[in-house]
């Protein structure tokens, strides 16, 4: 199989990139490891407030449907496939459980997204201890209530959002956080948590999940010296996110470290091209960011692909996208944008 652009990952970044290059008649193949496109949008039932200018406010599930509906007939989607390796002649091996398809691609865009980190404490491997992301997937995508007595660990926006959703479904919810204040910047969400009297235990330490075959209790110490024991049937761990990097490793891209962007990530320049000439990066795998950051980096990368393959003038568009990204990351994600600038500067040294 031959294609102009191979996109690894069918989440928001990959889909938006496919649609962007699709407008120019560029042939694309999207490789998606799960059984559906959409990535994290699939379990995003809330309105996303921070979309780029070109999108109106909508839920993630709506946005996903919009992207999928707009895919051009020049776009081939390979669900349940993974990028698994490279042949000696440079073709990429795209595998399902049965076979490996060799694909020759003029350009590759890696849009593999991010993975949740966990928190390690005794009992964290017990069944019923799941990630916040898994809680969202169960609840919003699979139609399964994760638990009736939920303990949410951490106070990031996804953690608080899940707390609200479970509370609204009638579950008892408690939030346990190791820090001394809320880490979520969404004031509206915070106000709701307070209004609904969802208990938050700050400065918790020495966490331990107890149970025989599944989690039954979460025990922790408080700074006051008290030990607290919560009866529970699900504990959701709200960890940090880190870029998913295997595809960059297979393609031999250079890496750099930027703590504010989630740790190790590929080196790239202002066109979002990695150290390997035909490989680009976009979305959370190029540094953990907001939904607008995911979509704007996807558009910047894919316009640069358009420029390289079609010699289209995209300079002005790209500049205005960078400007928008700077404005958004500069206001709400200040440290991450400085990190991004450092990475790009590094690519030119």
């Amino acid at each position: 199989m031959d294609t102009d652009l191979l996109i690894i990952g069918g989440g928001p970044a990959g889909l938006h990139a496919a649609n962007t290059v699709g407008q120019y008649g560029i042939r694309t193949v999207i490789v998606e490891e799960s059984n559906a496109l959409g990535g994290l949008l699939r379990q995003q039932v809330h309105y996303i407030n921070d979309l780029p200018r070109e999108f109106k406010a909508q839920t993630g599930q709506n946005l996903s449907e919009y992207f999928i509906g707009n895919l051009s007939d020049q776009c081939t989607v390979l669900l349940n496939h993974i990028f698994t390796g490279v042949y000696k002649d440079g073709r990429l091996g795209i595998a399902n459980q049965e076979t490996v398809i060799p694909i020759r691609a003029k350009r590759v865009l890696i849009a593999t997204g991010a993975a949740e980190e966990t928190m390690i404490f005794p009992g964290w491997t017990l069944p019923g201890v799941i990630s916040v992301g898994a809680g969202q997937i169960l609840h919003h995508r699979e139609g399964v209530l994760p638990g009736k007595k939920a303990v949410i660990l951490g106070s990031s926006e996804p953690a608080l959002s899940l707390s609200m959703d479970l509370f609204d479904k009638g579950s008892d919810v408690a939030i346990v956080d190791g820090g001394s204040e809320i880490s979520c910047g969404n004031q509206q969400l915070l106000d709701e948590i307070v209004t609904k009297n969802i208990p938050i235990y700050f400065e918790a330490f020495n966490l331990e999940a107890l149970g025989t075959d599944e989690v039954e209790k979460l025990v922790f110490q408080q700074s006051s010296g008290n030990e607290k024991k919560l009866e529970t049937d699900v504990v959701c761990i709200g960890g940090e996110y880190s870029p998913i990097l295997e595809s960059f490793e297979i393609l031999d891209c250079k890496f750099t470290y930027a703590e504010k962007l989630g740790g190790w990530l590929p080196q790239y320049d202002h066109t979002l091209k990695t150290s390997v000439n035909h490989v680009f990066a976009a979305g959370n795998c190029a540094g953990i960011t907001s939904m607008s950051g995911i979509l704007l980096t996807a558009e910047i990368a894919s316009l640069n692909v358009v420029h390289e393959l079609m010699n289209e003038q995209i300079q002005e568009q790209v500049e205005s996208l960078w400007e928008e990204l700077i404005n958004i990351e500069d206001s709400s994600f200040l440290p991450s944008f400085h990190s991004r600038k450092d990475i790009i500067a590094e690519a030119y040294t």
């Binding site: 993975a115 949740e116 491997t125 017990l126 069944p127 992301g133 898994a134 075959d213 599944e214």
Partner: peptide, 19 residues
């Protein structure tokens, strides 16, 4: 919730990341 056990120590395991 318990889907199986680990090979060596037979500890219970279930869904964790869902991805």
């Amino acid at each position: 919730k318990k889907l199986g056990t680990t090979r060596k120590y037979q500890r219970p395991r279930g869904l964790f990341c869902a991805t």
